[in-house]
Nucleic acid binder design. Sequence first.
DNA 1: CGAACAATAT
DNA 2: GATATTGTTC
Length: 250
Amino acid sequence: MDQELWPSGLGVLVIDNNFSYLKVMEELLIKCSYKVTTYNNVREAMSFIYANQQSVDLIICDLFFPTEDTLLILREATSKFGIPTVIMSSNGDTSTVMKYITNGASDFLIKPLRIEELKNIWQHVFRKQIGAEHRMCNNVQHIDQLSFRTTEATATLDSEIRENNGMVTDIQDLRKSRLIWTMQLHRQFIAAVNSLGADKAVPKKILEIMKVKHLTREQIASHLQVINSFWYIYIYLLVQDKYIAPTVVA
DNA sequence: CGAACAATAT
DNA sequence: GATATTGTTC
């Protein structure tokens, strides 16, 4: 493929308390033909989101202290505005990554960022559309509520999913009924794929990392197959009530 | 042989 | 349409 479709002018909001790194990010993102806004604190960024909701397509937020601020903007952006949010940090240990992924983060990037990584982040915007279109999440609010229930309370629900701290650890007796890839389960899948890297992400290794009982290699293989083949089709979709015209890049 | 990848079935 | 199963290659 010598031609590539590209969504120019996608609105990206960057939040980082380090001014010089904000400048670096801005330069890199502009090179990727995004429309960039930067803030060095969560409070001002928040009010910008409230005022310019329709022009923010994606948020990239640094994991600074206090981390409650990062969690706050993550939850608000995802649940209230439905804006995909990417967390970046220099610390990339597995438990931290999983914590933010299960709280709604679309991705977790490790500093320093390479421009190749930023080129592809627009896909998160469309990933949301894929989820909506394909009903990968049958009911996001329902799933989000689930993560606040105890394990025993969850087990009584007909979702047949066991979980811990918002993490799915077991899928119960799904040998009879078909597996449903809930948003939580899918996030863990994506997190596992990301931690492996695109080339190393094979079903067996994904399964090992996800640590979900009763989940099979075949089920992951099937999911992986559909994710890979439908990834780029949704370029032409509406993104949050706004059409992003794809442009052809050399 | 087991696993990945691809195609097809349910 | 989403996941399971089968088939083929590595």
